[in-house]
Design a protein around this nucleic acid. Structure first.
Length: 258
DNA sequence: ATGCCGTGGAAACCACGA
């Protein structure tokens, strides 16, 4: 089973690119972030025509997450993180697909830091960490995939020194990510590429993609029941070079059958 | 050192992103 995560930066503006990539890559499951579309404007028909069932948690203009599954509608198990009824951002969606719990998340950016947006990021992180612990306790296959908006280590940035004043690389952000992983999750890409620079995002400006000035912020965290089935992983980085593309590239993992 | 580009929504600019 191949599971992908892709921050599309606008699902309607990105639709041609998304459909082209789906046709090419044929992932079994896809987690999308930054739909930037209200619930009623999700392109359900086009995605269905491409062979995918979908559930989504939309929001006007910002945020928004979706889960697609080839040939079936994902069975929704959760919409939104627990712990803060005041939080109206659409940043979490979860489904049970083929016996695996797939959580699709879009963690807050947090800039400018410090400030209220950074506080919100850390709060959201805390809620995610608490909820993730409860998922681990289930002792079932769980994949937490998405845009974590965290550069975990210096190995995950083209020029780490450029990011020291950024919420994605603040010590608190990295510590929060480390604390989450240390519950017992496996960072799939880093597990398979322990010493290599693997990027999932390149700025639109400064010719970043051509210079390969990227960062790794889209991650897969695997529960032990899934980690043992991890066969391969990668980034479809050529998609980042397409016309009218997102600033993120699709990232994926391949799991063996149970 | 810098939102330099891009998206969406509202309004001929602004918020937001990383």
């Amino acid at each position: 089973m191949r599971i992908a995560t892709y921050n599309v930066n606008g699902v309607n503006g990105r639709l041609p690119v998304l459909l082209r990539w789906l046709e090419l890559a044929q992932p079994d499951v896809v987690c999308l972030q930054e739909l930037k579309a209200p619930q009623e404007k999700f392109p359900e028909g086009a995605i269905e025509k491409a062979g995918y069932g979908a559930i989504w948690n939309g929001q006007k203009a910002w945020n928004g997450v979706a889960i697609l599954a080839k040939g079936e509608k994902p069975s929704e198990t959760r919409r939104g993180l627990p712990g803060d009824p005041e939080d109206i951002h659409s940043r979490y969606l979860e489904a049970l697909i083929d016996g695996t719990i797939v959580g699709c998340l879009y963690l807050p950016n947090g800039n400018p830091a410090p400030g209220p947006k950074f506080d919100y990021k850390l709060q959201w992180f805390k809620r995610l960490t608490k909820y993730a612990a409860s998922l681990l306790k289930l002792n079932v296959p769980v994949v937490l995939a998405g845009d974590y908006n965290v550069i975990p280590t210096e190995l995950d940035a083209y020029k780490p020194e450029r990011w020291v004043d950024d919420a994605l690389f603040f010590p608190e952000s990295r510590a929060a990510y480390r604390k989450l992983v240390d519950q017992g999750w496996t960072d799939a890409l880093r597990k398979l590429y322990p010493n290599e620079r693997v990027y999932t995002f390149w700025d639109y400006f400064r010719n970043s993609y051509a210079r390969d000035a990227g960062i790794r912020i889209d991650h897969f965290l695997l529960s032990p029941q899934v980690a043992s089935r991890l066969m391969s992983a990668g980034v479809d980085r050529e998609v980042r070079g397409w016309e009218k593309t997102s600033d993120h590239a699709p990232t994926w993992i391949e799991l063996s059958e149970k």
